[in-house]
């Protein structure tokens, strides 16, 4: 494992912990898109189908369990927690799951490396992860009231994707036969979705003003 991959995973972990901590301590999920969180839970569930079958490393298994546990906990908090669920911006978070789920499923059935259930589900999770942030970005733009933690959450997620691209570049030059178009293209698209957010995030940071996205 190279430094970019490790840094990417740690940023990913930090993003999830920031969000979980925000929800748990402030008992509020305002500004957080339940749609995006549900999509991430599905991403992890479909990607880690073989978690107890295929063993890669202790590190991988632990991280997978953390991502599964945290994503389902966040969904549980927003949907079921007595206090937290009252702060959910339901009327603003209107993005339809199906608009993302269906194209990803069709694409995974058509473009995959191997037509088996496990592989198609894995490919589906890659495509879905690429676009799962969209409901969250739409919500941020709508509410215009972005608290620091939600901003940091999205920033860390974007940073994780950017670091994974560096990881692939590193692996491409250091490992033989390391060419994976599906993951790369989906990953690049996913990172590009954050470009706009990054721009405004750095602007607000540079000028030390509150982060606000243009309508």
């Amino acid at each position: 494992m190279n430094i970019f991959r490790l840094a990417g995973d740690m940023t990913h972990l930090a993003s999830v912990l920031v969000l979980l901590l925000k929800i748990h301590t402030i008992k509020s999920c305002s500004g957080v898109s339940l749609k995006t969180q549900e999509l991430y839970a599905l991403v992890f569930a479909t990607r880690y189908l073989d978690i107890f079958v295929t063993y890669v490393s202790f590190y991988n298994t632990v991280m997978k369990l953390i991502f599964l546990g945290s994503s389902f906990s966040i969904v549980w908090y927003i949907r079921r927690h007595r206090v937290v669920r009252r702060s959910y911006d339901k009327d603003q978070d209107t993005f339809r799951h199906l608009f993302l789920l269906l194209p990803c499923l069709v694409l995974a059935l058509v473009i995959n490396e191997k037509f088996t259930f496990k592989e198609v589900m894995w490919t589906f999770s890659i495509y879905l992860e690429a676009v799962a942030i969209l409901p969250q970005l739409v919500l941020l733009q709508r509410t215009r009231n972005i608290d620091n933690l939600t901003g940091q959450y999205v920033f860390l997620l974007g940073a994780y994707r950017a670091l994974y691209i560096l990881n692939w570049i590193y692996r491409y030059f250091t490992e033989e036969h390391y060419v994976h178009w599906i993951t790369w293209i989906a990953g690049i698209i996913q990172t590009l979705l954050y470009a706009d957010f990054f721009y405004y995030y750095f602007q607000s940071w540079k000028n030390s003003v509150k982060l606000e996205l243009p309508a």
């Binding site: 995973d9 990913h12 295929t54 890669v56 991988n60 997978k64 490396e113 990881n167 036969h177 993951t183």
Partner: peptide, 10 residues
């Protein structure tokens, strides 16, 4: 198998 080797990422 080639389809498996990139499954080592999260």
């Amino acid at each position: 198998s080639p389809a498996q080797e990139y499954h080592d990422e999260l």
